[in-house]
C-alpha cells in the first residue's frame, strides 16, 4: 500500500514540475510566470516528501522534510523578490510582460528622444 502511495506522489511531483516549467516558458504575464515557478517548486517538494517516505520502518526519514522546510523558506523569499521586481518592471515599462531585447532598446531610445524633445 505504502509503496503504491509513494509512487503516486512521486509521479504527481514530476507532473507538477513539468506543468510549472511548461507554463514558465509559454506564459508571458509576469504574475503567471511567477506562479509557474511556485508550481515547479511544489512539485520538487512533493518528490522530496515521497522519497522520504520510502525509508524502512514506520517513521519516515526526517532529512528530506528538513530540506523541504528550507526549500519553502527559499521559495517564499524568491517569490517576494520576483513580485517586487515585477512591480518595478511594470512601473518602468508600463507592461506586465517582458519585452524582447530589440524592443527594449528601441523603446529606451524613443524614451530618450521624448525626454529630450
Amino acid at each position: 500500500m505504502i509503496e503504491a502511495d509513494h509512487r503516486i506522489f512521486l509521479l504527481a511531483g514530476a507532473v507538477l514540475f513539468a506543468i510549472g516549467f511548461h507554463s514558465l516558458v509559454v506564459q508571458s504575464h509576469l504574475l503567471r510566470r511567477i506562479m509557474a515557478l511556485n508550481v515547479m517548486g511544489s512539485g520538487v517538494f512533493l518528490v522530496f516528501i515521497a522519497l522520504g517516505s520510502q525509508a524502512p520502518g514506520p517513521v519516515p526519514d526526517p532529512v528530506p522534510q528538513a530540506m523541504v522546510l528550507t526549500g519553502i523558506v527559499v521559495s517564499v523569499c524568491a517569490t517576494g523578490l520576483a513580485l517586487a521586481l515585477a512591480d518595478r518592471v511594470q512601473a518602468a515599462t508600463g507592461k506586465v510582460e517582458l519585452e524582447d531585447d530589440a524592443q527594449t532598446h528601441r523603446n529606451a531610445t524613443d524614451a530618450t528622444k521624448e525626454s529630450r524633445g
Binding site: 516549467f21 510566470r33 515547479m40 523578490l81 515585477a86 523603446n107
Partner: peptide, 17 residues
Amino acid sequence: KREALTAAMRYLFVSLS
C-alpha cells in the same frame, strides 16, 4: 533603467527555474 529591469527579471526566471 528599463533595460536593466527587464534583464534582471529574465535573469531571475532563468536563475530560479
